[in-house]
Design a protein around this nucleic acid. Structure first.
Lengths: 330, 330
DNA sequence: TTGAAAGCGCTAACAG
DNA sequence: CTGTTAGCGCTTTCAA
């Protein structure tokens, strides 16, 4: 069954294609004879007609599709973010294309080309590392707008969390609870989320005349948290709390301690950042900092739709959550 | 900057648009003068040309896009499934559109229309409940192929897990460990995954001359597992193990017991199904049945690409995982 | 208030 | 081996 075209509808309704198009787009409908409009509508229904998107795009040079390019959709933080984006897009009749760069710079680079030919109208971008700027610029020059989410990227509009402030507040709270000797497992260098959290943490320590026993870099995965925590726990018996740059790594640390027969929080405290679903699942419940991922997605899509020019920056507030994994000491 | 067209390239290379098109599509390149091809390639690079997808689609009547319509992308099982689909699609140069029906029949129905006008070439479908068959048929008539994943839908090709067998095996294992009094929290009625798992479980019990203390229906969410487990634990003190239709509900049951001060596995055992990441996180580690979600996604996309006609059915093997949440009794 | 005509950028016969 | 031609289905002036 060949799908009906605008011409079929026009013929059945006894009007011209232009008239059908006008009805479809709600243009000049004000000064259109109601009867004509009725006939068109009837014909559309009779033929079960749906406009061909491709043809429309070709004409209008707008696809009505935005892409969200992120490191890992199976990471609960990002899937929540993606849902936020999709919900706003949906409200505006825009479709969402989720592109999973699989934590690989290479795959991410490949996606730029795909997105270019895909002809998306905009992109919500969560960079894996140092993005391929030339490709970004190419998109921009083609009129595709880009909003960076979760991680900062200089020169681009961004929606991020108050990572530095949240991390600072978390450190203060831990110090208030009597912790003095910290190990910090940061995220990858160069990723603003990781660096800001580390900086905020160190600053708080410094203001209290403290300095960390050890600082290491992971890659935000459960696995990296696990192995770094093992090393830390083996080499630094003085550590009173392990603080990680995100929840997944913190949960990894929790498991490492468990496997080494070290009691949490009895012997060592553990804290994370993000407040993803699994953080509520583990026992002891994880001390962390709540980041509004869904809201972040909504904000980012809002910025994109609003057609932000050049830059623009939105920082979302975060909230420390003191779980059982870091009770007051003594 | 107006983007370059195939004509600009042709002009610069001193050839006709068709020649450029041939180079682009790798057609007849065998019998093309190498020099011509070189010139075209050079022109493409010089103009930084990318073919306009829309025009191509309009001509070929193929969008190169498949959609995956599922109940909830933030459910770890489905996000893994989605990744599987995307990975195969990526290998074939096909883009993936993720549509999240948000566990709502209404939203799901709305997506059919969107997908229709979006003009996707195929759909991987995980139904929320009783799908709007008429809309499905419409897509099918338009030549869009559909593969159902995870849940069966009569008359459509499907990739599912051996839910019945897995559930049967799980029950046998629990019985072997000395459990006799069971409460079962099933998924929603009418969803094959839920019904098959329940059926397999009941069958095993029956073969051992047993019958469950109580059977309830949840909706596969953490929350429903939590509240049903509370009721069960309050009313049926004889229950030795709560078995849930999926891990999220089982984890909810675990938490319910915890909140009621009931020891797991000391006083009651708990088991789930799926083996999602959080199941490894909780303590005691959850007894469950591993379902290869990623593989399921890959298989489904494979079927779609292979252009399955009419039906076809693939059942993936599952594997019981005996965790600490159901140790041998006594 | 409506219609005719001219493409949007590309591909696929069909010629040469 | 390469070019010419004729649309794909829709929107948008411009005229009537």
């Amino acid at each position: 069954m060949r799908r009906a075209t605008i011409r079929d509808v026009a013929a059945l309704a006894g009007v011209s294609p232009s008239t059908v198009s006008r009805v479809l787009n709600g243009k000049d409908v004000g000064h259109m004879r109601p009867e004509t409009k009725e006939r068109v509508l009837a014909a559309i229904k009779a033929l079960d007609y749906t406009p061909a998107k491709a043809a429309r795009i070709l004409r209008k040079r707008k696809t009505g599709v935005v892409a969200i390019l992120l490191p890992d959709i199976s990471n609960p933080f990002f899937s929540l973010l993606a849902r936020g984006v999709a919900s706003v897009a949906f409200e505006q009749g825009i479709s969402t294309l989720i592109c999973d760069s699989d934590n690989s710079q290479e795959k991410e680079n490949a996606f730029w080309d795909i997105l270019l030919s895909e002809g998306v109208d905009g992109i919500i971008f969560v960079p894996v590392g140092e993005p391929h700027v030339a490709k970004l610029q190419k998109l921009l020059r083609r009129g595709v707008s880009i909003v960076v989410a979760d991680r900062r990227l200089d020169g681009y509009p961004v929606v991020e969390a108050d990572n530095r402030g949240g991390s600072f507040a978390l450190a203060e709270a831990l110090i208030a609870r009597g912790y003095r000797e910290f190990a910090y497992i940061a995220g990858p260098e160069g990723v603003s989320t990781a660096d800001d959290r580390l900086a905020g943490f160190l600053q708080a320590l410094e203001e209290h005349g403290l300095s960390p026993s050890v600082v290491r870099r992971g890659d935000f995965t459960y696995h990296s948290g696990y192995s770094l925590a093992r090393e830390i726990l083996a080499q630094h018996r003085e550590v009173e709390a392990i603080v990680a740059g995100n929840d997944l790594m913190a949960i990894g640390a929790l498991r490492a301690a468990e496997d080494m027969g070290i009691d949490v929080p009895g012997s060592v405290g553990v804290a994370g950042f993000d407040h993803v679903f699994p953080a509520e699942l583990v026992r002891p419940r994880l001390t962390t900092v709540a980041v509004p991922a869904y809201e972040m997605g909504r904000e980012a899509m809002g910025l994109l739709a609003a057609g932000t020019e050049g830059s623009g920056r939105k920082v979302l507030p975060v909230e420390p959550i003191l779980g059982e994994s870091t009770p007051p000491r003594r």
